Computed example of a mutant assay.
Amino acid sequence: MNSFDFNTSPDRAGTDSIKWRRYAGRDVIPMWVADMDFAAPPAIIDALHARIDHRVFGYADPWPSLAEAVIEGIARDHAWRIQPEWLVWLPGVVTGFNVAVRAVGQPGDGVFTATPVYPPFLHAAANFDQRLVTAPLAHSGTRWEWDWPATEAALQDKVRLFMLCNPHNPVGRVFEHAELSRIAELAERHDLIICSDEIHCGLVLDPARPHIPIATLDEAVARRTITLMAPSKTWNIPALYCAFAIIPDAALRTRYKRAMAGIVPHVNVLGLTATEIAYRDCGPWREALLDTLRANAARVFKAINALPGLSTTPVEATYLAWIDCRALIAERGIANAAAFFEAAGVGLSDGKDFGLPGFVRLNFGCPPARLEEGLERIRRAVIS
């Protein structure tokens, strides 16, 4: 593990990076969109070189050793033994939950999610003339939790699909067995399909809170669940565009594939290549990454909670911190927290895009020295 370098990163300024091009020519540290500044695992780089050296790029389908690597990786990391036929390959998780909306509901039906949440969740329903129905997560002071009465009330509104984000982006929760069981009970009672975005499942920082795929609760839950996973966040390869849905129920899987037909492209062969290597060979790299992210998360928690007007809760998973700026905004008369910190040289995600103004999201998936500089700029802006 010690051979992996998480103290430096390749220079991304002036490249194709969406993250870095936003602030081109400005002294702003990008800490917004959810990709890390670390190089991908060496084993993935080597595998991509080998595939390119083959020099032929004809049409390709996923191959048996790829499926085996994913199946064994999920069994190893999440104690879930899936079957090869349950896998449906996708170019991305966002595609995956949009397909779920299309497959499950009809125009006018409700699609439920809890806010704040990853912004594409908030737009998927409207893409298919369906209605977004939400309930807020509750901030207990030390963590974010479900507001069960509000969730129950929202599900009365002709909802067909329950869109779950676990581990949660942006609040960093790993939902516990009791919470997932409550969701499963609601889905059973209201006859809902669950679409569970579990893209951050490989980035659990708190070893005491392992990720539990909701489909593992029992066979009844599995039959009504579409689980979405990808190697992109864990191994920092989002632009290779490879993801997959796990759909145990054959009838639901058929509906899902029918909704994909003619509009969802095949997955890029380089993404498939990288996925096999990630799940099969890159466990040590992931463990070393998690050590770095745990230390970075502790830095963020300590630094932010030491500042007047700011607070954050512990990050149980992801490399994303959700920061409450409402007291600072009220005290200083700040119109927009993200713009305030951008002017101070730190580019953060605006909470309003997640459905909760007054917050910002900070990506700490970067070398510790860069994180320290970003936190120092935040500190100077707040105390000035």
Rank of each mutant, 00 (worst) to 15 (best):
S17W: 11
I18A: 14
Y23K: 05
G25W: 11
V28P: 06
P30A: 08
A39E: 13
I44M: 12
I45L: 14
D46F: 09
H49Q: 14
I52Y: 13
R55V: 06
A60F: 02
P64D: 15
L66R: 09
L66K: 00
A69K: 03
I71E: 08
D77L: 04
L87N: 03
V88N: 08
V93D: 06
T95I: 08
F97T: 05
F97N: 01
V99I: 12
V99T: 10
A100N: 04
A100G: 08
A103F: 03
P107V: 03
F112Q: 01
T113H: 07
P119M: 05
F121C: 06
H123W: 13
H123V: 08
A124G: 05
A125S: 02
R131Q: 12
T134D: 07
T134S: 00
A138E: 13
W144V: 04
W144E: 04
E145H: 07
E152P: 03
Q156E: 15
L161P: 00
L161N: 03
L164D: 01
H168N: 13
N169R: 09
R173S: 10
E176V: 11
A178T: 12
E179Y: 09
E188R: 14
H190L: 07
E198R: 01
L203M: 14
D206L: 02
P207W: 10
P207L: 10
P210L: 11
P210E: 12
P213M: 05
A215T: 01
D218N: 15
V221R: 00
L228Y: 02
P231E: 05
N236H: 03
L240E: 01
A243M: 07
A245W: 01
I246C: 07
R253E: 13
K257Q: 15
A259W: 04
A261Y: 12
I263M: 12
N268Q: 14
N268I: 06
E276F: 08
I277Y: 05
R286Q: 15
E287D: 15
L289I: 01
L289P: 03
L290D: 09
N296V: 00
I304V: 12
A306L: 11
P308C: 09
P308A: 00
V315F: 07
E316P: 02
A321P: 03
A327R: 09
A327T: 14
L328E: 05
L328G: 06
I329S: 11
A330G: 13
G333W: 01
I334C: 10
A339D: 15
A339M: 12
A339L: 14
A344V: 09
A344N: 11
L362S: 05
L362Y: 10
A369T: 11
R370L: 14
L375M: 00
A381T: 12
A381C: 11
